[in-house]
Design a binder for these strands. Sequence first.
RNA 1: GCCCCCAUAGCUCAACGGAUAGAGCAACAGCCUUCUAAGCUGAAGAUCUAGGUUCGAUUCCUGGUGGGGGUACCA
Length: 579
Amino acid sequence: MKEIIKNKITEAVNEMISKNENYSDFELGDLNFEISFTKDEKFGDWSSNIAMILAGRLRMNPFELAQEIAQLFRTENNIEKVEAVAPGYINFYLSKEYFSNVVGEILKKCDDWGKIDDLKGKVFLAEHTDPNLFKEFHIGHVMTNTIGESLGRIAQFANAEVKQVTFQGDVGLHVAKTLWGMKELNAELPDEESDVWAKQAFLGKCYAWGEKNYSQEDNSNVKNEIIAINKAVYSKEDEVQNKIYKTGKEWSLKYFEEIYKILGSNFDHYFLESETFEDGKRIVEENLNKVFKESNGAIIFPGSEYGLHDRVFINSEGLPTYEAKDIGLFYNKWKKYNPDISLTITGGEQKEYFQVVKKAAGMINKEWEEKTIHIAHGTLRLKSGKMSSRKGEIVRAKKWIEDTADIILKKMKENNVSDNKEADAKKIAIAAIKYSILKIMAGKDIVYDEEKSISFEGDSGPYLQYSYVRANSILNKLSGYVIGDFKKINLRSGDVPRIEKMLVKFPEIVSKSLSEYSPHVVANYLHDLSAEFNSFYANTKIADEKNVDYKNNVALTEAFRMTLKNGLYLLGIEAVEKM
RNA sequence: GCCCCCAUAGCUCAACGGAUAGAGCAACAGCCUUCUAAGCUGAAGAUCUAGGUUCGAUUCCUGGUGGGGGUACCA
């Protein structure tokens, strides 16, 4: 529809220009005007700003120009009315047929409703979460994971071939600190029968202990020990240490598997630093004196020459830093997937760091820079201040989810509608958490208030799930009917309900969300859509055969349910049947 | 010091340079004999500050104030 309107406007403007010699030297080609949904029903359904843009160029009154264009606009069946309105909008009113046809289309497309071709044939890589083995998974990781998973799913809806990957840190100073701690705190070592949570909690404690001792100024012995351990991790020469390392690594990998399962996150591949650092180191060394240079015994990239920071890629011990490992990751990503778009999602504090790495990467291989997009999201911070796994001051993801699920479970027991309360409570908890992250534009900080539990009402994940449950409940009641019976939709007796008009927007919303790499566009839309449905629900008895618009309303409810379900999928949220 | 980001209602967030700046929470007034009240309806409430660009600025530019982040061998 958008394209039709756009073409017809172009025709009208061309006609206007050809008729009037005042415009003869005017070129339409580069006009970038828009056709967008109106923000209020009273302005019609679609609206164009063409007159206001033309007005600037032709130095004319936008409203008069709008009137002229509107008059020349040749309407077609589905466009009922075209109207020029001050300050210079041209508004389009669509017919009832148009909207009921879209409802029919939604019922036909089902799970495919909302899919677009924006990334057809493209390989889309989404790297996110990037936890360090030997450290605990905290609520900050949940944020990256949630945003990354959602962006991947949105790209998938845009018909891209999506690969979700993560880059896990299994070598480096943090590992050395943990290993040192494991030796020191050996007495507390959990036995093999302990669960993954206890084991990882122990590793987290060891890390914090190692970090604390490492950074104490008067403790140069410990510092040297840890540096030695770090070297041995890379070289794998110390048999005893290799064994400890192997134990810790296995515990961690199992632990992360459990976490990903809880979050509903699926990775196509796990890159490990231990598998990329050699490539990274080699590439950096190959490009010494071309891209990189030596400085104080280390190999650095002189970012300051490009308005960025200088950063160390290989330290004076000859070991690769995260920077070099990231170069190795670029190499391995392209070797394995050759992506058209490669997204890296991290916290905002890595913004300037990543600019440096990306710049350096681009000087090695142009494609690496050109096809990489860094999404820096905000920090999930505590009300009391920043989390620090170094100091052991973190909120564990698992605890967050379980605490949330407990509150929900209590509420479910009061209501007593769900048949699998435990499982549903978990889904609702995840929904609440993910939605609270996704409803905010990526890039902004979120303050996590441990006192105030997360919201289950209003603009929240559970609100969306609840709206789904309501629609579901109506449709279940009609189990004697097959929805197929409603696919032949008659014209409504009255006005098209707002919810029906809103459904039409879904594919456009997906497209916008993708182009801005911002799941919050989808989240906000689903909230508005659900609010509109709930309002419709409160004012209309939907499952009422006596109503003249009965079939329309049932079909509309089904279309809403499908749209919401597909939208929730994009956010990585599961619908529940009852709650 | 230098660089980057942010500032909208009491609180948490929205708003392609456009129409009356939208929501949720909290507080206030209502609505369960009717498809699940995790809901609905109503009223109240906001663009940090000084300039500039524009037909039009919450949005773009400059200064100020306040907050966050980054600044070489951590990730």
